[in-house]
Amino acid sequence: MKRIKVLGSGCRNCANTAKLIESRAAALGVAIALEKVTDMAAILAHGVMSTPAVVVNDKVVHAGGVPAAEAVEAWLRA
């Protein structure tokens, strides 16, 4: 089970990022626990200044924009 967090203030790009990760995980059959983090203190505690950002198992893998589907699949397979 991969723990994935989407960090963002709740803007449309953040929702799109979460949706993309969910759909890719379902397509690849990877079990994930997805959490949306909107609390600013929590976002900045991850050292992230541009959102949406993606955290996989407590490691920031992406910041600033909706990630590419290719990249999402690479995180899920890793």
Binding site: G8, L44, V48, P52
Partner: peptide, 16 residues
């Protein structure tokens, strides 16, 4: 380029 949704974390990050 920054989407206004990044304005808040960027603002705090710079002040910090």
């Amino acid at each position: 380029p920054f989407c206004s949704c990044s304005a808040v974390p960027l603002f705090i990050g710079l002040l910090e």
